[in-house]
Structure formats: C-alpha cells, structure tokens
C-alpha cells in the first residue's frame, strides 16, 4: 500500500514542479522581452531558420492537403449535386483549421525539435555556462529571440499553407475533377468571411508561441549527456504537437464566439 502511494506522491510533486518550472519560464519570457539589449539580429536569424527554411515543406504539405481535400469532398458532394461547393469548403476548412494546425504540427516537428536540440546541446557542452560566465543572460540570448521568431513565423507560414492549399484544390478541382473553372471559387464570397481567415491567423500566432516556448523550455531543461538531449528533443516535439491540438480546440471555441 505504501509504494503506490509514495509513487503517487512523488509523481504529483514532479508534475507540480514541472508546471511550476514552465510557469516560471513563461514569466521569464515576458520579463526579459522588455529589457535591453534587444537582439533584433538574433530574431532575424531565428525567423530565417524557422520561417524560410520551412517554406519548402509547408508548400509541399499545403499543396497536397488542398488537393486531397478537394478530391475527397468532391465525391460526397457530387451525390447531392453540390459539387460547386468544393471550392468554398476547401478554402474554409483550410483557413480555419487545417492551415494553422498542420503548419503548427510541421513546425513543431522541425523547429521545435531543433530548438530543443540546439539549446540542449549547448547546455551539456557548457556553452550556456560560458555565456553566463561572460555575463550574458543565456535565457534572454537564446530563448527570447526564438520565441519571438516562432510567434511571428507561424502565421506567415500558415498563410502560405492556405494559399498553396487553395491552389492545389483548384488544380485538382478544375483539371482532374472537371468542376467548372469559373464556378470553383464563385460561391466563395457567400460562405467565407474575413473572420475565418483571421481566426486561422490568431490560432497560428498562439501555436507559434507555444511551440517555440516548449522547444526552448525543454532545451534548457535537458539532463546530462547525449541521451538527455535526445529525450529533450523528443519531448519538445511531442508536447509541441499535443499543445497545438489541445489549444486548437480551446481557441476555436473561444474564437467562434468572438468573431
């Protein structure tokens, strides 16, 4: 009886400590973001790393997602003769859900994991200590630029995902499924409003923030050795995805009421 209870106890303590540490981490972010030096150059570097370097995979995923979506919806719609709605449906579902969430998952894997690995490796090779010894705040130097960059990059990537997804859907719809070209997006303005696009963008911004927050958090908290870095990277990727999906639900339910 004692052992399970003590396990429960220690697990609870561990969970609460983790939550506590993460809260402190978040607090640190908001504290240090307002303090100089403002490392714009680092933010730019990170934007390049998270943003530009993800463009290829975003375009690829976006394009194929749009194409598949058009394809799948077509068959059902054709049965009740609403195949003219394929265009709007693809555009709407991409704008509100698929673009932010899928782009978020992709970036979590790429950038979130990379952040954890980078920072984690720096920790085990004492590079973070070197920064501290030099009198540089390692958190402000490493974490803040990444988190800022992540928050900015993901909405941008999400828009690109959306655009290429619609193009992919259009190609499949008009060329392969032979929906009338002029009809494809004709109904779009009837069903879709700017609010839908804004919803997706707001979500993407939050996702970007969470992913880079999680990536840097796990990077700073790796345990010793190569195994520690590997674990940290894994945790960053997995938790990034989990948080994206859960916050997607929460944000959706809030945003539909506001917008």
């Amino acid at each position: 009886m004692r052992v399970p209870v003590s396990i429960l106890g220690s697990q609870t303590i561990k969970t609460f400590s983790s939550i506590g540490r993460m809260s402190i981490f978040i607090w640190k972010f908001f504290y240090w973001i307002a303090k100089p030096p403002f490392r714009l150059k680092l933010v730019m570097e990170q934007l390049y790393f998270i943003g530009n370097k993800s463009v290829f995979i975003i375009l690829l995923s976006g394009g194929f997602t749009g194409m598949v979506l058009a394809y799948q919806t077509y068959f059902g719609f054709k049965l009740i003769n609403i195949d003219s709605l394929v265009g709007p449906v693809v555009a709407l579902s991409m704008a509100r859900e698929l673009a932010p969430v899928l782009a978020g998952l992709i970036v979590s894997g790429r950038a979130g994991g990379a952040m954890a690995a980078q920072i984690g490796t720096m920790k085990v090779t004492e590079q973070i200590d070197a920064l501290e010894v030099m009198g540089i705040n390692s958190f402000q130097y490493l974490a803040v630029p990444r988190i800022i960059a992540g928050t900015i990059a993901l909405p941008l990537l999400s828009i690109l995902f959306l655009l290429i997804g619609n193009i992919g859907g259009w190609i499949v719809g008009t060329k392969a499924l032979l929906i009338d070209e002029s009809l494809f997006f004709a109904k779009l303005s009837d069903f879709m409003f700017m609010a839908d696009i804004y919803q997706g963008l707001i979500k993407a911004t939050f996702f970007g923030f969470f992913i880079s927050l999680i990536g840097t958090y796990f990077g700073f908290n790796v345990s010793k050795g190569a195994e520690g870095v590997g674990r940290g990277t894994n945790l960053a990727v997995v938790w990034g995805m989990i948080v994206v999906l859960i916050s997607d639900y929460i944000l959706t339910s809030i945003l539909v009421k506001i917008l």
Binding site: T121, M122, T125, E126, D129, A130, V133
Partner: peptide, 12 residues
C-alpha cells in the same frame, strides 16, 4: 572573470 572550460565550450 575570464574562464577556460574543460572542453573549451566554444560556440559551435
């Protein structure tokens, strides 16, 4: 201070 680490801790 100036510190030299055991494995140099250079920024890779």
């Amino acid at each position: 201070f100036g510190m030299v680490f055991q494995y140099a801790a250079l920024f890779d």
